[in-house]
Design a binder for these strands. Structure first.
Lengths: 131, 131, 131, 131
DNA sequence: GTGGTCTAGACCACG
DNA sequence: GTGGTCTAGACCACT
């Protein structure tokens, strides 16, 4: 899978990496058991620091998206235990400020939900192809 | 309106302030034309530096949520021109990584939309009270 | 002449007053020998502080645009000695940063001069009416 | 490029910096893709506080004159989308008071345009050298 | 070593 | 008393 970082973004590079890999999993482009490139390899490919890639992998491991294997390196793990409670609360905290803002800008509930559904479907559609 | 910042949070204080004020507007607790406290006053009330408040106010001004009036200070502005295009794209970029993550965690579309709708309604409900 | 100040502008009110009165003179709406309202009167009309009007009048007097008369108050003076040297240098310092900016934005010389001419003519046209 | 601030001037230091850098771009002394010094470096060189430099850089970024790159710091960006409408209106608001003043002082249209043209040409001439 | 964030304290312009 | 500007020094996140 191709990873493209935006060096001009205000989102830290290691967060961009993390997000793109999670999106890759969601879209089925990174399948269960597949190995990610080594830290060194990926850092060189993108032209960034080792530490940056390392940090991204650490976060992914923490979130249960990958498992570190001594021989195969970082391995995709799609079977994730959903800590339902944590997840919901965290989700709410992340969404509330975003929704408040578009609410103030006048976006209607239907528009918002439609937008959400479109994004969600973009994952499940791609996911099917991955099967 | 009461503002409370979490000094332990990794979200910068000025962002917390900005978000709480936007939520305050969304919930109708801060009405059109109302003045916010002066930077010095609010800084003292919360127990933070005035520059931190200043930065929050600057961002709110930039986003069109308040207007700086030379006599009345920071004034709430609910009549916002919604730059629809920009808004949608920004929204998508903010939501995609969040949705990708809960998608991987196994959250169903209905659950997600239900959660979104609940948050949105919490604003429009409060807004009605404000009338 | 009607003076309208914008309390949301980042231009100080007293500067706005000064500029509008100078523009009024340029357009011939304020004629030689005519009196401006008293400081108190103008402050009350616009709803601003006495000091603010005072400061504007002081600047105008300094620039030779008005003469303070004990009986008639602030009197318009259109016969101004043009301190040519000073004026040119000051003009260059004010214009250079503005022109540099539009130059960077890609505005062509013809466009710029056309714009300047339009503004200048708006004064001389109005000025004729005043004669 | 050499930057020199006037500490006696009533123009804020961060504005002086901003203007000098924009002029530097206009004159071709700062080329596309070139990096500006770090805020700390420049602050030390000039003998001012790094926050002051930071503010100047922030304004330049906002205006599209530089791009903040996570690896290369502040990078000159000459390819600017000219928001033609905004630009014209802003230009008019900035020029009108200046032109009104010299009009009152008796400067003729030809003199004014000649002065403008001279300033503009000083940029395009230098620009050629930059090629 | 970089920029981002926060604090603290000072002076001035503005109203 | 207000916000705007500037300084100084500190810690942290990022690369």
């Amino acid at each position: 899978m191709l990873l493209a970082v935006d060096f001009q973004s205000d989102v830290p590079i290691y967060i961009q990496l993390k997000q793109q890999i999670i999106e890759g999993i969601a879209r089925g482009r990174l399948a269960e058991g597949e190995s990610l490139p080594s830290v060194r390899q990926l850092a060189q490919d993108i032209g960034i620091n080792l530490h940056t890639v390392n940090k991204a992998y650490s976060l992914l491991k923490e979130g249960g998206f990958i498992i570190m294997d001594r021989r195969k390196g970082a391995v995709i793990n799609t079977r994730q235990a959903m800590a339902a409670g944590d997840c919901r609360e965290k989700l709410r905290d992340e969404l509330a400020p975003i929704i408040a803002e578009v609410f103030c800008k006048g976006m209607k509930e239907e528009e918002l939900i439609q937008e959400i559904a479109r994004i969600y479907k973009s994952f499940s559609e791609d996911g099917k192809h991955g099967l």
